[in-house]
Structures are given as C-alpha cells and as structure tokens.
Nucleic acid binder design. Structure first.
Lengths: 152, 152
DNA sequence: TTGAAACTGTAGCCAAGGCTACATACTGTG
DNA sequence: CACAGTATGTAGCCTTGGCTACAGTTTCAA
C-alpha cells in the first residue's frame, strides 16, 4: 500500500491513529502487506535450493494462484530488489532476497516448533504456521526460542 | 474477494492448487480476508458493551483508519448481515454479528494467554495477538486451551 | 526440422481496503 | 433560534492481489 511517496507536505487532513491504546491494529495491518512477498521469497529459495530452478508456473502452483498472478507478484519482487528474472529464464533471488528468505525460513521453523511444543497436531501446526508467522514480532519470536530451549 | 459466485460450469481454464502438498498457502490467504471484518465486529461489540454507542468516527479512530474507510467497511458489514446502521444513528450488530464477536473475543483471550504462558512480554503479546488470532485454526485453538488448562 | 504442447508473458477486469476532497446532517451554545 | 463546529456520508482515486482471455516463446518428439 502507501509505499512512502515522500510527498506529505501539502495538507494532510485527518491523521488517523495517533497512538491511542488501540492503534495496535494498524501495526498488524501494515505487517500483513509483506506476507505475500515473504512467501514467494521463501518458496523461490526452496525451489532453487532443492531442484535448481524457480519457474513462474511452479511458483504459481505451489502458492495456489494462477500463473499471471504469480508473474505479477514476481514483477513486484523485482521492483523491490528481492529477485531478478529475465524473460523465459526463471527467477532468482538477489542478496537481499536470500537474506530475507533465510530469516523467514528460520522464523517458520521456530513457529512450527512452538506450536508442536504446546501440543498442536502436526498437520495443523504446519498449516497455521503459514498464516501466523508473518505476524510474529521479534520479541515474540525471541520468547518462543527461549521457551523451546528451556524445555527441550 | 471471489466470494463464491456459484458459476463454474463454463470453462475454468487453469484450476490452481489441486491439493498438492503446498496449497496450504491458499488457506492462509483466504482466511486473511475475514480478519478485518472480525476486528470491526469485535470492536463494535466492545464499544456498545462498554459505553452504549458505536459511532463510525470512534471506530475509525480505534482501528486506525480514516472515517470514510471505516464507513465503507461498515457498509460491507451490513451487506454481509453482520451489522445494521441507519444513517447518523450509530452501528449495531445483528445476531450473527454478536455471535461472531463473541467467538473472536474468546479466541483473542486464548491467544493472548497462550503467548503469555510461553513467556512473551505482555505488551508484545497483546500486540501480536491482534495479527495472529485471525490465523488460528480450531484445532490449534483447542490445543492452546488444553495447554493452558494442563499447566496453569 | 517442424509443430504441438507447455510454458511465459500481456491486457484488462474485479473487489478489498486505503486515502483526500467535498457535501450534508446534527447539536449544542450563545 | 441560529449558526459554528463536529460527525457523517459520498465521490473518486490508488495499490494489491486475484482472475480470464489471449498472444508470444520454447522445447521436445515425430
């Protein structure tokens, strides 16, 4: 969404969400934006790591969307400097993309492990983690790690 | 999004996501759709329960958006049978809306408690719960409840 | 080597969820 | 009771993330 246009001076009428107690909502909402990107980056990294190639069609199938949707998102990945892709030649991650992928993957693991540790059935854990992981803050992630370590 | 159009017969070219191992993504994505609705419904219920009125401006401020955005979302709530609102007269929940609100509230509590129980700092717990709760499946919620009861 | 099949890409549409700008209704004071 | 100020509502625009339809490339097997 509003990807920092750097043009605020004019007027700015209604300033929403001055830090009242409940503007926690805003945070969750904004965070949600990057979720898709993270999924793509993680998947691309996996595909390359385990097979060699990340083709748009495979990505689309794995994410569960049609290929034009995947291609459009990949274009956005490129715009944001996370991936590179020449037409008909597969998708690759930039340095930044790889870094992000690694971070996402690590977080995913911790979330799944935490869910399992508190007794969530394996299947649900894997499935829910996909949705949950994008909303886990650093503080919470750290707490999860601690919990897992302290009761192995 | 594509809210079940009941019109598939024609052609349907590309069927995305036949249950391959990784179509778990789709689930998380779809679930995300209802998140906003849930937040609104919960908030409206809170406002009514604790003060008497749920006005669009208050809702907007609490959610952290401008009032036209809130009004538009409230319109959607009405369309979906979760709320009723006559112009200039505040927003109220339907039976269905109240039921949903109660369910959301209960889930929120469990999620926060679970986070606290595994050692997440209170502030982060409250904040993250807002984003996490919409992705917690029934199975996982049940597991959370069990965990809390069995050690707590 | 040549074509059919599969993959890739483009165009154009839609709904959700944001925003700003403007218009209208309410309400409470003076 | 009038009117200023606030709350509501409307219009119109934007981006994201979906989709279908169609067009252009590659590739692989006859």
């Amino acid at each position: 969404m509003p990807e920092s246009h750097a043009d605020d001076p004019p007027k700015r009428a209604e300033m929403p969400a001055e830090p009242t107690q409940a503007s926690r909502f805003g945070k969750a909402r904004t965070a949600q934006s990057g979720a898709l990107m993270e999924d793509y980056v993680e998947l691309i990294s996996d595909l390359i790591g385990s097979g060699g190639e990340a083709r748009p069609t495979d990505i689309a199938r794995r994410i569960g969307v049609t290929h034009p949707t995947a291609i459009k998102t990949i274009a956005r990945l490129k715009r944001e400097g996370l991936a590179i892709a020449k037409p008909y030649r597969g998708v690759f991650l930039t340095e930044a993309g790889e870094t992000l992928a690694e971070r996402v993957r690590a977080r995913h693991r911790v979330v799944v492990d935490l869910l399992l540790a508190v007794g969530v059935p394996a299947e649900a854990a894997e499935q829910d983690a996909e949705g949950l992981e994008h909303h886990v803050s650093d503080a919470t992630l750290a707490a999860f790690g601690r919990f897992l370590r302290e009761r192995g």
